[in-house]
C-alpha cells in the first residue's frame, strides 16, 4: 500500500496524480473538485489511522483513504 497520504507531514502540499477505488466514492471526490492534477494541503489526520482532511482552493473535505482506495500523490515539501 503506497498510500502516502498516510505518511506525508501535516501542513505539507502535494499534487494528486491518480485515484482509484470504489467508483461512486471516487466520482464523488472528483465532483467535489478533488481530481488528478489538484494541488492540495494535508490539513489534519484523525488519530489511530483515521480519516484525513485536505484543503484545495476554497474547499476542505474529509475522507478515509482506506485500503480499498489507491491514491498516488507527488509531494512537494
Amino acid at each position: 500500500m503506497d498510500n502516502t497520504l498516510r505518511t506525508m507531514p501535516i501542513g505539507s502540499k502535494a499534487i494528486l496524480t491518480s485515484l482509484e477505488g470504489d467508483s461512486d466514492f471516487i466520482r464523488r471526490l472528483n465532483e467535489l473538485g478533488f481530481l488528478p492534477g489538484t494541488t492540495f494541503t494535508l490539513l489534519r489526520r484523525a488519530p489511530f489511522g483515521g480519516p484525513v482532511e485536505i484543503g484545495f482552493g476554497q474547499s476542505r473535505i474529509a475522507f478515509r483513504p482506506d485500503s480499498t482506495v489507491r491514491i498516488h500523490i507527488h509531494q512537494f515539501t
Binding site: 470504489d22 461512486d24 474529509a62 475522507f63 478515509r64 480499498t68
Partner: peptide, 10 residues
C-alpha cells in the same frame, strides 16, 4: 462486502 469509505464536508 466492502464499505464505501467515509467522506464528509465540515
Amino acid at each position: 462486502g466492502d464499505i464505501i469509505p467515509f467522506l464528509i464536508e465540515f
